Lab assay of single mutants.
Amino acid sequence: MATGGRRGAAAAPLLVAVAALLLGAAGHLYPGEVCPGMDIRNNLTRLHELENCSVIEGHLQILLMFKTRPEDFRDLSFPKLIMITDYLLLFRVYGLESLKDLFPNLTVIRGSRLFFNYALVIFEMVHLKELGLYNLMNITRGSVRIEKNNELCYLATIDWSRILDSVEDNYIVLNKDDNEECGDICPGTAKGKTNCPATVINGQFVERCWTHSHCQKVCPTICKSHGCTAEGLCCHSECLGNCSQPDDPTKCVACRNFYLDGRCVETCPPPYYHFQDWRCVNFSFCQDLHHKCKNSRRQGCHQYVIHNNKCIPECPSGYTMNSSNLLCTPCLGPCPKVCHLLEGEKTIDSVTSAQELRGCTVINGSLIINIRGGNNLAAELEANLGLIEEISGYLKIRRSYALVSLSFFRKLRLIRGETLEIGNYSFYALDNQNLRQLWDWSKHNLTITQGKLFFHYNPKLCLSEIHKMEEVSGTKGRQERNDIALKTNGDQASCENELLKFSYIRTSFDKI
């Protein structure tokens, strides 16, 4: 039985969820670079991206490699990797027998973001014989899940209580170790020597080791999670996991709180800001991140802002960003909400898709409305799209047979046209069989910064309504002859009103 693990408890099935942008060198404390989270699957090609990484700022997932063999891993080693800020997950990587050479110096898994409450997941690794993470000293947050690894031993010899604050939620089941077939031998045991430290858990006094050649490092209890030197002297209180010299914040392997210019500090002093819960960055760093993602459509890219001495992905609820200094300031009234469309555009074809934009005031991208039916549609669209004030790209209304009016965009005031449909149009209306009105132009103002209007096959939309939009939106004169079809717009509506004058002759039985 794995020490510190839980057996036999019912657990939810383990679901495996399925960018080499360097964020800056980590400095003297770390020998390499800070790398983003990685999802490495199918083959070993991307694994080489770990070569210079000291910190993975995010998670590391290595999974679904069915053609790899043990010899493929023999020359692979990433000794610079010290810390993973989120979680480490391995799933069905064939041929991998140990992690001792792959990650010989991995010391800390912070667990800032977890995989279903777990910071370390080893699942269905069919050839893994031992973990071998002999320098792993601290899992700051989260638990361990090690399950269905039929060859995995050296679990009962690990004292997880020396690595985690609590072992109650560890789930370590259905491994070879369960069948008591392992016969784990710690260093020196074969020669009758006791080389590794022994600890007591559940009444068992057991030597602690990761492999037959690597003991588990056990520091004096007084050192807590700070770690200790090879001689057993406690590291500085700002260290986490390990250090090369005692009581020196510049000799830590990793930091308990924050890293700044080669030393570990309790908090980031001005003019620095907390970033990702582990390091200090200056304003320029946060500003660069903001600008890199301002026009990016890459998933996970955030326009970072500053709030409460932190550089964070977005302002919290009730705050909006001051564009001059990136500071989050309290909103006066309802907060603006910028919604970034991942692929640059979004099609609204149902109430469900409209709900995804609920509360958005600025759309960074283009909207395509293609709704053919739905219950209580006008009210639903207004509830979900009615706060949109600005669209950076274009607005396209296409084959939306259920629409009679666009009044559900009740606050839309600006279409920038930074991206144009077919390279020309910022407003595009095609084949809307029941569209009769755009907006009530006596109450609604709309500016279209650039781009043209396109109207074709809107049989109940009168040309007068379209011409009014040209005047109000500032697009009059931009359109070419064929942009607004004269014969297919309003051709099934009563669009022309003329005053009919009647004269009559009164007659009676005795007068003409």
Rank of each mutant, 00 (worst) to 15 (best):
C293I: 08
H28W: 09
P79A: 11
G188R: 06
Q276N: 08
G142D: 02
S213A: 05
L155M: 03
L136G: 02
F91R: 05
H48A: 03
K294N: 01
F115S: 10
E238S: 09
E181A: 10
L174K: 06
T85S: 09
L44M: 10
A198F: 10
I62V: 06
K148G: 03
D86S: 02
C223H: 02
C196Y: 02
P70Y: 03
N308D: 09
D248K: 13
A156L: 03
I306C: 14
K67P: 05
K251Y: 13
T189G: 14
S98I: 02
D39V: 15
M137Y: 14
A230E: 14
T329Q: 15
V121R: 01
S161A: 02
L120S: 01
C293S: 04
L96A: 13
H212Y: 14
F205D: 15
N135S: 08
L63N: 02
S323E: 12
S324R: 10
C252S: 00
K310S: 10
N309A: 10
K67Q: 00
V144G: 01
I139Q: 00
H226Y: 03
H214P: 03
L50K: 00
E181P: 03
S324P: 11
I185M: 10
L136M: 01
C153H: 02
V34K: 10
D247V: 11
A156T: 05
G32S: 03
I56D: 00
I146L: 14
V218K: 14
H236M: 04
R256Y: 10
R145E: 01
S317N: 05
H290S: 06
H226I: 09
I146M: 06
C286L: 02
N257Y: 09
G58Q: 00
H214Q: 15
H48F: 11
R256N: 08
T211A: 12
F116L: 09
C228K: 02
K251S: 06
C264Y: 01
P36K: 09
V305Q: 06
V206P: 13
C264D: 00
K217Y: 04
Y30T: 04
L29N: 12
G32R: 09
M83R: 00
S323V: 15
Q299F: 04
L332R: 10
D75Y: 10
D165Y: 12
Y30A: 15
I122A: 07
C239A: 01
L174H: 11
P104T: 01
L233H: 10
L44A: 10
N42Y: 11
P316T: 03
L174V: 06
R162I: 11
N170H: 03
K217N: 15
K148T: 15
I84S: 00
G192I: 02
L152S: 02
T320C: 09
T267L: 03
F258A: 12
C315Y: 00
L96N: 02
R297C: 09
F285G: 03
T211F: 04
E124K: 06
T267Y: 14
I306P: 02
N52V: 11
C223G: 02
N105G: 07
A198E: 15
Y273W: 10
Y259I: 15
C315K: 00
I222W: 15
P249K: 02
L120N: 00
G58A: 01
L63K: 03
F73I: 12
T157R: 12
F78Y: 12
I163A: 01
H291Y: 14
D184C: 12
G227F: 06
E51C: 15
H290G: 10
A190N: 11
E180N: 10
Y87E: 00
P79D: 09
S237F: 08
T107L: 06
A156S: 10
P79L: 05
N170D: 09
P336R: 05
H302E: 07
H127S: 12
N149K: 00
F115M: 04
N105Q: 06
N309C: 03
P270M: 13
H127R: 02
M137Q: 09
C215I: 03
V121Q: 01
S225G: 05
L90H: 00
E124C: 03
V218D: 05
P249R: 11
N257P: 00
L136T: 02
I40K: 00
S324W: 11
P79W: 06
C53G: 00
R162A: 13
D165V: 08
L44H: 06
N202Y: 11
L63R: 06
H236Y: 03
K224V: 11
C255V: 00
F116I: 09
C293Y: 01
L81Y: 00
K191Y: 04
G232A: 06
G333W: 15
M38S: 03
N105K: 08
C186G: 08
C328H: 01
G300L: 11
V144M: 15
H307P: 01
T329F: 13
D169Q: 11
L233F: 06
P313N: 05
H59M: 10
C239K: 00
K191L: 06
C186F: 03
N179A: 10
P70V: 14
V281P: 00
G241S: 14
Q245G: 03
V281M: 04
D165M: 05
V173H: 15
S237V: 07
Q216K: 04
G32K: 04
D178R: 08
N309I: 03
L289I: 14
K176M: 10
D39R: 14
T68I: 07
L289D: 03
R145M: 07
C331E: 02
D247T: 04
I139S: 01
E314P: 05
V253E: 04
N149H: 01
L63T: 14
L64Q: 02
M38D: 03
C209N: 04
C234H: 01
N195Q: 13
C228L: 02
Y304K: 02
Q216S: 10
D39S: 10
S284A: 06
D86G: 10
P197H: 06
F103T: 01
T140M: 05
P336T: 06
L133I: 14
L90K: 00
N149L: 00
T68R: 12
T199D: 13
L174W: 04
P31A: 04
E147D: 08
S225M: 10
V93S: 01
R145T: 03
H214C: 15
R297A: 14
S244Q: 14
N170K: 06
Q299Y: 04
L289S: 08
C286T: 03
E238T: 03
G232C: 11
R162Y: 12
P197G: 02
L90F: 06
H290I: 04
S323P: 14
C286H: 03
S166Y: 09
V144R: 01
I163W: 01
L99M: 12
P36Y: 12
L50C: 02
P334N: 08
E238R: 07
L120I: 15
H226P: 12
H307N: 00
H28A: 09
H302L: 03
F283Y: 07
Y304W: 12
G132N: 15
S284T: 05
E238Y: 08
N309W: 09
P330M: 10
V34T: 07
R110M: 08
M125V: 05
S317T: 11
T68D: 15
I163N: 01
E147A: 10
D169W: 06
P31F: 04
I122K: 00
D288Q: 14
P104L: 01
G95Q: 14
H226F: 15
G142P: 00
I222Q: 08
N150V: 09
E97G: 12
L102H: 01
L326W: 02
P79R: 08
L106G: 00
S244T: 03
N202G: 15
A190Q: 15
L120M: 11
F258N: 05
R297V: 08
T250D: 03
G37N: 15
L174G: 08
T68G: 04
E314L: 05
H226S: 04
N138M: 14
Y154T: 05
K67I: 11
